[in-house]
Each structure stands twice: as structure tokens, then as C-alpha cells.
């Protein structure tokens, strides 16, 4: 700050416009983020009943000031095998899909940074083009591709690689493919932004100092791209953990993901407190990788 005019800061802070600027995002965050989360948490502490709405009220009208909290839903979450396996399934599938996205997305993002600026824009648009088609239709398309009589099996049999169709649809592999396909742009864009900011002179310096291409990548390009890798992984991993459509359409019935269980609790079992408990628990679990991401990015930003 300008030391000769300390008053400049003071007047800015005391200006009403300053608070107006802060007011808008905070209001938005409170209404659309804090309040819904509080509601979900509130419902998770109730008990399911056959009524409208299908959960017990938190504050009893008959006795003033009496709060009835039930931790049954959370207790079930820790005891019931279904939830635990669904959670581990979700984390495994999301984790593997994220790694797949990274393995496919990194070379793509890197390649995009290495072409001429005009061609670069073309490639970036191509990465974004699938967003112009509805998500559901794209997943349906994969059903057509992966099915026993689908395009892939047809091609394999036509070429004589296999005689009978390979079961691809309704397997965990199909879920990996689906998630990796849908979320790939979320990996490519942050990686592209990060990689395009790496000074090409630094890469040249590494080459000049005797590093072969593998070492240039391992000791310079990859470490410098870590903030982008972290951003991409978080953007893929978080929605993938709670993914419901892709595992339902492409996955098998044997390995349910937590998103599917949550949907079932809400719409089939009509156990809202249980569904809300799952949602709250998942939110807490996901906050951990976000915190890790924060620490990685601040580490990268430090000189």
C-alpha cells in the first residue's frame, strides 16, 4: 500500500459501495449454499415417518424448547454393509476414473500447448464440443457403443479379434469409461491453463543443462504442473464420487455407488433422514481432498 496515503485504504473500507460489493456474493452463498446445507443436516438428524414431509420435526410443538435429535441415520451409515461398500465403491470408481482422466488428459493438454495459437483454439473448442449435447444422451450413446450388439463388439467380431461378444456394458469398466469420457474436459482445461503458463525457456534450460526428454518431463514440467493436476483431479473426483446417472446406466447392479444409494433412499425408500445423513457424510469426506488441494496450490504458489 502507498505509505504516504494511509487514508486511502481507510476511506475505501468505510465506503458503503465496498460493503455492497461484498454483500452480493455473501448473500448468494448464504441463500444457495449455507441454508440448503443446514436444511440437509437438519433433516439428517430427524427420524423417518409416514407423513408429509416424511420426517419428524426437530422442534417439538407440544413441549416448548425441546429439541429431538436422532443420530440413528448416522449410526446405520457406520453399521450397514450396504452403505460402507457403496462408499468404498464410489471412492474407488471415482479414484480410478480420475487417474484415467489424468493419464488421457495430461498428454492432450500438453499437446494443445505445443501447437500454433490458431490450431490451439480449434483443439480447445473440440474439447468443449461434447458439452453441446445433453449429458444423458452422451451416456446413452455409450450404451449403444458398449452393448453386446454394440459398435465395439461388432467391430471386434468383424475383425475376427473375438468370436463371442465381450461383456462391456453393466460392468465397472463401463463406468470408468463413462466417467472418464464425461469428465475429461474438466481435467484438460485446468491442466491446459497451467501448462500454457510454464515458461518455455525453463523447459529449454532443462534440455540445455543435459536433461533428456523424460527427465525434462519428470523434474521440470510435471512438478510445475502440479497445481493444474490438483485442480483437474478435484474437478473430476468430486462430481465422480457422487455420480448417479453413469453408474446407473452403464454399471452393474452388483457394485452400487453411494450416489445410487442416496437416490434410492430418497425416492424408493422415502427415508429422507437417511439420504440426508449420506449427503452430509459425503460432504464431510469430500472436504478433505479439497483441503488437500488448497494446500497443494498454495504450496505451488509459494516462491
Amino acid at each position: 500500500m502507498d505509505q504516504r496515503h494511509p487514508g486511502v485504504v481507510l476511506t475505501f473500507a468505510s465506503r458503503p459501495a465496498h460493503w455492497l460489493v461484498l454483500f452480493a456474493p455473501y448473500t448468494w452463498l448464504i441463500i444457495f449454499c449455507a441454508v440448503p446445507i443446514a436444511l440437509v443436516m437438519k433433516i439428517s438428524l430427524a427420524e423417518p415417518i409416514l407423513a408429509q414431509p416424511p420426517f419428524t420435526p426437530l422442534f417439538d410443538d407440544s413441549e416448548f424448547g425441546c429439541v429431538r435429535l436422532s443420530f440413528d441415520s448416522y449410526a446405520r451409515l457406520g453399521q450397514d454393509e450396504v452403505y460402507i461398500s457403496a462408499l468404498t465403491n464410489a471412492f474407488r470408481v471415482a479414484g480410478i476414473s480420475t487417474v484415467l482422466c489424468l493419464l488421457i488428459g495430461f498428454p492432450m493438454a500438453y499437446a494443445i500447448t505445443r501447437v500454433t495459437p490458431g490450431f490451439r483454439i480449434c483443439l480447445l473448442v473440440l474439447v468443449a464440443v461434447p458439452f453441446w449435447t445433453a449429458f444423458l444422451i452422451r451416456v446413452y450413446a455409450w450404451m449403444g457403443l458398449l452393448g453386446n450388439h454394440g459398435l465395439i463388439n461388432g467391430l471386434l467380431q468383424f475383425m475376427g479379434v473375438t468370436e463371442a461378444p465381450i461383456v462391456l456394458l453393466h460392468t465397472e469398466l463401463a463406468v470408468y469409461i463413462g466417467i472418464a469420457y464425461v469428465y475429461l474436459p474438466f481435467m484438460i482445461f485446468p491442466l491446459y491453463v497451467n501448462l500454457s503458463r510454464i515458461d518455455p525457456m525453463i523447459v529449454d534450460a532443462a534440455r540445455d543443462l543435459g536433461a533428456n526428454p523424460i527427465r525434462v518431463f519428470g523434474s521440470v514440467i510435471f512438478p510445475l504442473s502440479l497445481p493444474g493436476v490438483a485442480a483437474g483431479c478435484i474437478l473430476v473426483f468430486i462430481p465422480a464420487v457422487g455420480e448417479f446417472v453413469i453408474p446407473t446406466m452403464l454399471g452393474g447392479a452388483d457394485s452400487l455407488m453411494i450416489g445410487q444409494i442416496l437416490w434410492n433412499e430418497f425416492f424408493i425408500a422415502r427415508n429422507w433422514p437417511m439420504a440426508c445423513a449420506i449427503a452430509s457424510f459425503l460432504l464431510a469426506l469430500i472436504a478433505l481432498p479439497v483441503a488437500a488441494f488448497q494446500s497443494i496450490t498454495t504450496m505451488g504458489a509459494r516462491p
Binding site: M201, I202, D204, A205, D208, L209, G210, N212, V220, P303
Partner: peptide, 19 residues
Amino acid sequence: APHARPVNLMFQSYALFPH
């Protein structure tokens, strides 16, 4: 290849590895 040459270049921007 550049990494095989007995030659080193000091860059105008120094190109130090920031990490």
C-alpha cells in the same frame, strides 16, 4: 540433441526453475 552437447546457454530471462 541439446542435452548431449558440450555447450551451455545462460538465458536472458535466466530461466531458473521456480520450484
